[in-house]
């Protein structure tokens, strides 16, 4: 736990060295209180996007798992990240939001069993299972399961990134040296129990309250797996 706090805290201190994709003046909404009342869960339909892509990844114990194994009939939140990411409104935002969700949802024993959080690194060279161990939730069964994942090779990773359209660009200085940062757009995916992508969040509306709202919508009896059950007219 301590190690993780350290990780989250230190990152912002070195932030803004790289070009940020979003205006660094404004903190992403996910850091603060939601500034609007979200639509009531269960009253709206989450569009069904194409099936989530499958692929093999490895966890912090170096075990090979397929993403579908990990989705495992749970509602999954998946984000792509790398642990040395320094953009305050990038990976650290997603990590913080996942953390908040973990804390909030874990209070609800029914809900917490239906949810899994996955953070998949797109920097397998640096983010080895050993590194990921520092971030793994551990064995605290009271908390929503949150797994940190990486890949054994770029060849296995690339089709996954393509499938989720998570584009990454390594950044180089004027002399062509890798400067250690990977430009990407923050994307978090909501995946339903049938492995369909049901929402994609970016920095502008990645907020724990909204994500929990969407998860509740998927489970709400007023919806059929997140699609509002049409009532007959009148």
């Amino acid at each position: 736990m301590f190690k993780k706090i350290l990780f989250i805290c230190l990152l912002p201190l070195v932030a803004s060295a790289q070009e940020t994709i979003y205006d660094s003046f404004v903190l992403a909404p996910g850091w603060t209180k939601l500034s609007f009342i979200p639509p009531e869960s269960g009253t709206y339909t989450l569009p069904t996007y194409p099936k989530a892509t499958n692929g093999n990844v490895i966890n912090h114990k170096s075990e090979v798992k397929s993403l579908y194994q990990l989705y495992d009939n749970k509602i999954t939140l998946l984000n792509f990240m790398y642990t040395t990411c320094t953009d305050i409104n990038g990976c650290p935002l997603a990590t913080a939001v996942f953390h908040k969700i973990q804390q909030k949802v874990s209070k609800d024993p029914v809900l917490s069993k239906k949810i899994r959080l996955l953070s998949l690194s797109f920097d397998p060279k640096n983010d080895t299972p050993d590194v990921l161990k520092l971030y793994a939730t551990g064995t605290d069964k009271q908390l929503v399961d949150w797994q940190f994942l990486t890949s054994s090779s770029p060849e296995l990773l690339d089709p996954i990134l393509r499938g989720y359209q998570q584009r990454i660009v390594k950044e180089y200085d004027e002399n062509g040296n890798y400067i250690g940062s990977i430009s990407h757009i923050l994307r978090v995916f909501l995946i339903d129990q049938e492995k369909n992508v049901r929402n994609i969040y970016s920095v502008s509306f990645l907020h724990p309250d909204l994500l929990i709202n969407d998860i509740k919508t998927l489970l709400d009896p007023k919806t059929k797996n997140g699609t509002v059950i049409a009532r007959s007219a009148n």
Binding site: M1, F2, I5, I8, C9, P12, L13, A15, S16, E19, T20, D23, S24, F25, L27, W31, I88, A96, Q103
Partner: peptide
Amino acid sequence: KLISTLYGMLMSAFLAVALVPTQAF
């Protein structure tokens, strides 16, 4: 307590970042 410490640290870090002059986009 740990969590509140965590967020306290995060927030001070943000303030530091926010004071850095913004880049022109």
